[in-house]
Design a protein around this nucleic acid. Structure first.
Lengths: 410, 410
DNA sequence: CCCCATTTGTTGTAATCTATTACAAATAAA
DNA sequence: TTTATTTGTAATAGATTACAACAAATGGGG
């Protein structure tokens, strides 16, 4: 084949002023292979050779190193009827590893043990009456849940916990250490990573993420977003948040605050929003707006929304009307996002995950009219596949990230 | 120092399934050094060593190769009073190179010869009465302008033309070959790259870009966006377009259509837009809206806008009122973009470049109220620095891109 | 004016990583 | 059973950067 083959395509390296060395090459290739093994159930070596553009020997060496570190196992080849020696299958191992993930919301907290495949091995939830809760109390709750899940000394059962990820309904600095503002919890400038770290020991790294951002991460890697390179996730309950994936990477913004889609101004003659602006999308498509449209108490919370969903399923005309109006406003914000990003897919999570079924028709037909050049063909906006677990799975991904970037660090 | 130093920071390589080889390493490092030399006037070798994290010997070898290919010259060291042997200065050469760039707008066409530093060496413009023009006529205009600039057989004077870039007021596929839709020119699905290529010979690659996208590129690399990693450029005249830079890279979207900020819905009770939707930002902040607010003919074109600017400078109260109202609507769309992206900087180009002076106060004070958490502190939104040349410079960057990614390809 | 510490460029060698080549192993087809 | 094909492995080669030693250039101190 010779050099003329040269793997074509883009360089695979990002333009930057940082130099690259041979260690970087190894790390990058290990990471690429591990990444492929994570999404597919099992991959043959020859598939890896083709996908990476590397040679058989290089792939062999890389897999050997991953096996050595207990991240990958090789299983017998499958004779698939093709000619020639069958290729050995490589599979993600990671049976001895897991991430511990937490979710801090206004209604309570949740915790899960998640494996490298993004599967929830065990989880636990604790509800509290909605409202602001001091940080210390929330962290106490986390510790309680972790104990419930059997977390002892950096491990759960025979799985070593490689890191702790926390999803919070608030803005988080891009270093994943500090909660800058969580309006519904009434937190501001909380060094959450340090507080959690203090309770779980120094051996385990703690990373925080905005709940919509981590939801996006989860749906992108294991859910409805699958292998899309450009994706938008819209989630939330009272407050509406968004997670944006461009070219396979989360968009952070200047300081980690990107994705505040709930505060896109969509209605100049709308209500005053908690943020001080007027007619934010959140005031039109948030939980309170939905309840108001259905003639219920705005503060009814998730329980009221569930009753509404039941009524809709039973064909209650007034409730269906409320959903239709709600869908109209949802479409307006979605048109904005779609026209600006031209995403491959928009995933509706959080409250919208439940509601989607009842608004899909309205939203889709509105978007056909309002998206530029009709780019929002049906199927661009979909409901999330991970439902309530999305945030926990995404938070676990935060914890796994260092391992994924540098699989054989130690 | 030993390995413990290990350059820290991010890997510099993007997560991808593509493998990396030693050629890739060399290319990436050459590209990094060339990139640094492009922005700074001149850089010492020791500065390059520090910035790249590479060793002196590696940097020496890389610069040597760039010098060999005529892209870089080394000039004598500057004794800056520091102790030790003064470091040699490296400077971008590229005296023998240039890009030929074109801009196709509704009002006419423009052409320029641009060097590797993003400096316009020579340019020419041709106006036509506003309106749709067949592609062939526009391409004829381009050839005329190129001749005027002295383009002969892949060169202008003693500069070899490494590529041709074209900015068009329309959506362009992400491969930079086809204009999908240009409403104001009434083009759709035009294989513009091929048409231009046919007139300029096969030796020179032709790349097309959306005018706002290339404007963003130019302001990001050589203008107001400088070294910002997250930037938004808003430009346009009749139609409003946007170019989005995230993490130093243009956001393309699924098929290259991202950045249609002119069609963000901002006013549910607004006018019907040409795109079929209602209350698009464009209907509130486009040229026609401005003229309407000032009580002029909506179709007055750029000439009318210039008269308006003059009247505003002379303190015409009615015109100033019109600008204030216009600024209010500008702020609404900007708040949307800022809340969603949290950019370091927003650059106002095209028509807004001229108008900015008269709306800045209104926009800034509105944004302080409507941007989430007051993140739009003064100075986030600025006027472009490259003015009318931004699109030509950006189009030239499209032409230079292959060279920048792979400096010593041949 | 000379010597020394400091910084930088250069050169030769070592280390790291992937490509190449040759060969063995495993399978289907003839 | 033989042959063609595909895959895995091991040894060697090639490319690139790191490392170490030394030379060159400069300022500071005596």
């Amino acid at each position: 084949m010779g050099v003329s083959k040269s793997t074509g395509t883009q360089s695979g390296t990002k333009s930057s002023t940082q130099g690259v060395r041979s260690e970087t090459v190894r790390r990058s290739n290990l990471s690429a292979i591990l990444g492929m093994l994570r999404t597919a159930a099992s991959v043959t070596r020859s598939e890896l050779v083709e996908a990476t553009g590397l040679t058989r020997s290089a792939v062999g060496s890389l897999i050997g190193e991953l096996v050595e570190h207990g991240l990958v196992t090789e299983i017998g080849a499958q004779h698939d009827g093709h000619r020639g020696r069958p290729s050995a299958m490589a599979e993600l191992d990671g049976a001895g590893l897991a991430a511990l993930s937490f979710e801090i919301g206004v209604d309570g907290v949740a915790a899960a043990v998640v494996n490298l495949r993004g599967e929830v091995i065990d989880d636990a939830r604790a509800s509290r009456t909605r409202g602001p809760v001091p940080v210390e109390a929330k962290v106490d709750d986390l510790v309680t849940l972790a104990n419930l899940l059997g977390y002892v000394d950096g491990a759960v059962g025979d799985r070593r916990i490689v890191g702790i990820g926390v999803a919070v309904a608030g803005t988080v600095t891009s270093d994943g250490q500090t909660v800058v503002m969580a309006p519904n919890l009434q937190w501001s400038d909380v060094q959450l990573a340090d507080l959690v770290s203090a309770r779980f020991g120094d051996g385990v790294a703690v990373t925080i993420g905005n709940d919509a951002d981590v939801g996006a991460l989860a749906e992108h890697r294991f859910g409805a977003g699958d292998g899309a390179s450009d994706m938008i996730f819209v989630g939330g309950e009272i407050g509406i948040g968004g997670g944006i994936i461009v070219d396979g990477q989360r968009v952070h913004g200047r300081s980690g605050f990107a994705g505040e889609v709930g505060h896109m101004p969509v209605n100049p003659s709308g209500d005053v929003c908690g943020c001080g602006s007027i007619g934010c999308w959140e005031t039109e498509v948030g939980e309170r707006a939905l309840l108001r449209r259905a003639g219920l108490d705005e503060d009814g919370g998730n329980a009221a929304v569930q009753r509404l969903l039941l009524a809709a399923q039973q064909g209650d005309a007034m409730v269906l009307d409320a959903f239709a109006e709600h869908g109209g406003w949802m479409a307006i914000g979605l048109a904005c996002l779609i026209n600006v990003f031209d995403p491959e897919i928009v995933v509706m999570g959080g409250m919208f995950n439940d509601v989607w079924h009842h608004v899909e028709d309205v939203v889709t037909s509105d978007l056909a009219r309002t998206s530029f050049g009709g780019r929002a063909r049906p199927g661009v906006v979909v409901a999330g596949r991970l439902g309530n677990s999305a945030r926990l799975i995404g938070a676990a991904e935060l914890a796994f990230q260092p391992l994924l970037d540098n699989p054989v660090s130690a």
